[in-house]
């Protein structure tokens, strides 16, 4: 299919592909940071709450079995993370498809949004990879 394109059209097509990847990478970067910050906040807060509960004489499991006595904003953070992660999945899959990542790498990137602080690592990994691809040798 590409052979039918004139050399000028081919260059344009390549340029738009690069732009689309840049856009997808930006969307992924935003969602990786949003998801990561929300998850890190909720997780840190959870650790603090569990420690306070255990200092007060509750068992570790009580924190998860009890449904009340938690701050409203704390619960809201987890809800925000749930929906942010949903967007993270969409932009993550989109980017992985555009970069033709293997299924294993894609799954790792997607799971990174559920593990505290790991979405930052995944995002760094992806952007290193993109920087490497942007070098003239790999583009031509």
């Amino acid at each position: 299919m590409r052979s039918h394109l004139s050399s000028q059209n081919w260059r344009l097509a390549k340029l738009s592909t690069v732009n689309k990847i840049a856009g997808a990478a930006l969307r992924y970067r935003i969602m990786a940071y949003v998801t990561g910050v929300v998850l890190a906040s909720a997780f840190t807060w959870m650790v603090v709450l569990i420690i306070t509960w255990m200092v007060d004489g509750y068992a570790f499991a009580d924190f998860f079995s009890s449904n009340d006595q938690k701050p409203g904003l704390y619960g809201a953070l987890w809800i925000v993370h749930g929906w942010a992660y949903f967007l993270y999945l969409i932009v993550g899959v989109d980017l992985a498809f555009r970069l033709r990542y293997s299924i294993g790498r894609t799954v790792l990137i997607l799971l990174a949004g559920t593990i505290p602080f790991m979405s930052f690592v995944a995002e760094r990994n992806v952007h290193k990879d993109l920087a490497k691809r942007a070098e003239p040798t790999s583009l031509s």
């Binding site: 619960g75 749930g82 929906w83 992660y85 999945l89």
Partner: peptide
């Protein structure tokens, strides 16, 4: 209302569409 569990339920179902 336990919104968090409610949304998680919905999200799992959306994931299956995903």
């Amino acid at each position: 209302f336990p919104l968090q569990n409610f949304f998680y339920a919905i999200q799992w179902w959306i994931f299956s569409l995903f």
